[in-house]
Simulated scan of single mutants.
Amino acid sequence: MPTTETAPTGHDWAPLLRAHGLRVTKQRLAVLGALDGTPHASAEAVHAAAQSAGLAGLTLQAVYLILADLTRAGLARRVDAPRQSARYETRVGDNHHHIVCEVCGRIEDVDCVVGEAPCLEPADARGFVVHRAEITFSGVCAECLARPEPEPPTPPAA
């Protein structure tokens, strides 16, 4: 079950790792630091950031395993956006959603107008007790809208 506490930003993750039953390792700290600095990062981006931070021996497979552990423990959240690899963030414990640009793939947080979870209730919960609803809005960001359309190719002369 995800945690209801807000993850720290820019400081010591060790107490939260311990509180969630996870050993404190330099690899986990590097992954959390990378996520903290780059919300909505792919595993590949987290891997590159952790390697840049001095963990050259950290494998991509290890990053995937660490992200899975952190997600299960409620210290990270997996964001699944259409036509993209999974993204991860450390913003957990609140009721927020995401908006995804269909052109460039940028993901931004969108606060829920209702506040508490779940913000939506299904018409028929089929016997489930609903804890949360995750909403992904899709559209085109302002930067992509501002880009000029590419010129269509000129047909070859006959």
Rank of each mutant, 00 (worst) to 15 (best):
R106P: 04
I66L: 02
A68T: 05
D80A: 15
A86L: 13
D69W: 03
R106A: 15
T90N: 04
A62Q: 01
V63N: 01
D109G: 08
L65N: 04
P82M: 11
H97K: 12
E102P: 00
V103I: 14
R78I: 05
T90D: 02
C112I: 10
V110R: 15
I107M: 12
C101F: 04
R87L: 09
T59L: 03
D80F: 07
A81F: 04
T90H: 02
V103Q: 11
H97R: 11
V100F: 02
T90M: 02
Y64T: 01
C112W: 08
T71E: 13
R77F: 05
E102C: 01
E102R: 00
V103F: 07
G105W: 05
Q61G: 08
H98C: 07
Q84S: 14
E102V: 02
Q61V: 09
V110Q: 14
R77N: 07
T90K: 01
R91A: 06
Y64N: 01
V63F: 01
T59A: 07
V114A: 13
V79C: 12
R72E: 13
A86S: 15
C104S: 13
A86Y: 13
H96K: 05
D69H: 05
V79E: 06
R91P: 00
G105F: 08
Y88N: 07
L67I: 05
R78T: 10
Y88R: 07
V63R: 00
V100R: 00
D69L: 03
R87V: 03
G93K: 07
C104N: 13
C101A: 14
Y88P: 01
E102Q: 03
A73I: 07
G105N: 10
I66T: 02
A86D: 15
I66P: 00
A81V: 11
I107F: 09
H97I: 04
C104M: 12
I99R: 06
P82K: 10
A73C: 12
D109I: 07
I99F: 07
H98M: 10
R83A: 15
L70Q: 04
T71I: 05
V79Q: 06
V100T: 02
V79L: 13
V113K: 09
V100M: 02
I66M: 00
A76W: 00
G115F: 11
A76S: 06
E89D: 12
R106W: 12
R78N: 07
E89V: 02
Q61I: 08
A76D: 00
R91F: 04
T71H: 06
R106F: 13
R83W: 13
V110C: 13
T71A: 07
N95A: 09
S85L: 11
V92S: 06
R87E: 04
E102D: 04
Y64S: 02
L60T: 08
C112Q: 13
D69I: 00
A62D: 00
C101S: 11
I99H: 07
E108T: 13
G93Y: 08
S85T: 14
D111C: 12
V110H: 14
A62L: 01
G74K: 14
L70I: 05
R78S: 09
G115V: 11
R78K: 14
Y64D: 01
L60P: 01
